[in-house]
Design a protein around this nucleic acid. Structure first.
Length: 591
DNA sequence: CTAGGGTTAG
């Protein structure tokens, strides 16, 4: 036996490393844990456990197989260790989403007095960004500085990404600004940081800086920027990027394609979104969902549900996001029976309806005025307290359909469940206002102001010559405010001539009729449209992006504006699109 | 022979 072993080792020693039998066995074992254990035994029997490259490969393969504890055992029983083994373990563990074990390996590395490398930190940082712990993240940054990797371009890019994921934008920017030489990946991390944290304008601004500093961008850059364009409604820049992709040699994959679909969809151009989809060679569930959502938010519910079925026929299974997209499409289009059917089909795809799906269903019933059905749906759901978002959907429906009693009942429950959310109080006061109970409106408003609850400030954006202009209700901050107001006053006169009557009941505060009319007149979307009309030529489409829902008065006004000025106007609110043309809206007043 | 950071849908 011992002689055999000696022979074996003699033979093996003569082979080149890649031909060594142990290495071959390891390769063939792949991610199969049983086989890896056999190779491990083989290594020990043949006295090759000192061979670190083999041991490293064994341990990383074990992690790939999901056997993180086995990898730990390999490490703890290894007769010798080196920096490479540790870095490999840390990298593989972080890539395989074992963040805690990544830290375990890092601690052991220190215990063995093996100095970390920049490889160590990029992976360690990646694990911490998965943990989303602010304090721990800053501790890692401290380690990076103490060990002298503060100016390593790989580590810095990872830090930008880490701070992005935990929402520490200023720290991300500080690291980025402090880089002596910014890598492409660092630029991409910074852009993605702003995009992912709800600051699409800032993301676009960094992209501008990037172009100015002459850094060549790539496919991940553009995917992030397109996503930012989508969220801010920057169609001009989006089209510029699309053309750039067509004229340059950039890796056009399913991710970039999906980003393009979403950009066109969120800028209101479903036709182009479909065109991009049809040109893509690969369609995964994300791409399908983006297209279904495109049709859904633009009010084309029938097309959305047809695509949903086509997707399944083509062999792609819907996931939870797909169901949200298709159910909300049903809600926007009033496809009640289809919505019910699709909800029931979730189980077949291994999906369980969650709060977001329930919200879609309640919204669907609620929009259609089926308030009792919506209420019953909620009551049938749980034995315990339903999620607040479900009640909010019902409450919005109560407001829309002026159901006073149910509305007050729902709002009471909602406020009891989430007393810190200002939105609930506003909805409740709206319900009181609709019922003319002004003293209650005042009471609720006093609560909101008295406790300093944060309320969402509504705004509208209009893009003129690749520049976004922001307006809030009653805004006077725009440099051209005087001209805008004059144009707007004239615009109101013009639509009054064709039958516009200000819907003062949209004002949820008690004030004089005249004041109500003026308050309505300076709603942010009217300001944005007046500015847009005055700055663009006849025949061009106007696009407005809002962060809250359009009110009934503005909806009526914009219909008439589209008629009088012979303009197509697309308004995107936080939930869907309204395409105004020739005096009517694509939503057919169902929203 | 064994290791890096950034990208898409709600």
């Amino acid at each position: 036996m011992n002689e055999n072993l000696a022979d074996w080792q003699a033979i093996d020693a003569k082979r080149s490393p890649t031909q060594s039998s142990s290495y071959q066995l390891l390769r063939r074992a792949g991610d199969n844990l049983k086989l890896l254990e056999q190779v491990h035994a083989n290594l020990i029997v043949n006295g090759r456990q000192h061979h670190l490259p083999l041991l490293t490969r064994l341990a990383t393969s074990a992690i790939h197989a999901g056997a993180i504890f086995y990898a730990q055992k390999v490490l703890l029983t290894a007769p010798t260790v080196d920096s490479f083994l540790f870095s490999s373990l840390i990298t593989t563990a972080s890539k395989s989403h074992f963040p805690i074990h990544t830290i375990f390996f890092y601690r052991h590395m220190a215990a063995h007095n093996i100095p970390p490398t920049n490889y160590t930190y990029t992976s360690l940082i990646k694990s911490f960004s998965e943990l989303r712990d602010k304090k721990a993240s800053k501790m890692v940054h401290g380690h990076v500085i103490r060990k002298g990797f503060r100016l390593d371009r790989y580590v810095e890019a990872a830090l930008v990404s880490l701070y992005s994921k935990i929402g520490e934008l200023e720290f991300a920017r500080k690291v980025f600004d402090g880089m002596p030489q910014r890598s492409l990946v660092a630029w991409n991390s910074m852009i993605s940081c702003y995009e992912q944290n709800g600051l699409p304008e800032a993301a676009i601004e960094v992209f501008r800086e990037m172009r100015e500093s002459g850094v060549q961008f790539d496919s991940p850059t553009l995917a992030s920027v397109l996503s930012a364009c989508a969220n801010v409604g920057a169609l001009d820049l989006g089209i510029w990027i699309h053309e750039w992709i067509q004229n340059n040699d950039v890796h056009f994959d399913v991710i970039l394609g999906t980003a393009l679909i979403d950009m066109y969809a969120k800028c209101g151009n479903v036709i182009k979104a479909r065109e991009v989809f049809d040109q893509m060679s690969e369609h995964n569930v994300v791409a399908w969902t983006a297209l279904i959502s495109a049709y859904g938010v633009n009010g084309c519910g029938k097309e959305a549900t047809n695509l949903f079925r086509l997707m399944i026929d083509c062999g792609t299974n819907p996931n939870e996001v797909t169901f949200i997209a298709v159910l909300s499409a049903c809600a926007h289009a009033g496809l009640i029976d289809e919505g019910r059917e699709i909800l029931a089909s979730m189980r077949r795809f291994g999906q369980v309806p969650s709060t977001e799906h329930h919200v879609c269903m309640v919204d669907m019933f609620g929009k259609a005025g089926l308030l009792d059905e919506a209420f019953q749906y909620i009551k049938d759901l749980y034995t315990v307290q339903p999620a607040p978002a479900v009640w909010t959907a019902l409450l919005s429906a109560c407001k829309k359909h002026k159901s006073y009693d149910l509305g007050v009942h729902v709002a009471d429950n909602l406020i009891a469940a989430e007393p810190e959310s200002a939105g609930h109080y506003i909805l409740l006061s709206n319900i009181y206002a609709l019922a003319g109970k002004w003293e209650r409106v005042e009471m609720v408003r006093d609560i909101v102001t008295g406790t300093q609850l944060k309320k969402v400030v509504g705004y509208s954006i209009v893009e003129i010559d690749q520049k976004e202009h922001f307006f809030r209700s009653g805004d006077v901050s725009h440099p051209e405010t005087m001209a805008i107001r004059q144009f707007l006053d004239d615009m109101i006169q013009q639509i009054k001539a064709v039958g516009y009557v200000p819907m003062s009941q949209c004002m949820m505060q008690q004030m004089e009729e005249e004041d109500k009319e003026l308050a309505l007149r300076y709603h942010s979307e009217k300001l944005a449209i007046a500015f847009g009309l005055s700055k663009t030529t006849e025949g061009s489409t106007l696009r407005i992006v809002k962060n809250v829902r359009i009110c009934e008065d503005c909806h009526m006004a914009v219909k008439l504006i589209s008629l009088v000025y012979k303009r197509e106007i697309i308004v995107r609110d936080n939930l869907r699109f309204h395409h105004f043309k020739d005096g009517s809206c694509s939503c057919l007043d169902y929203w």
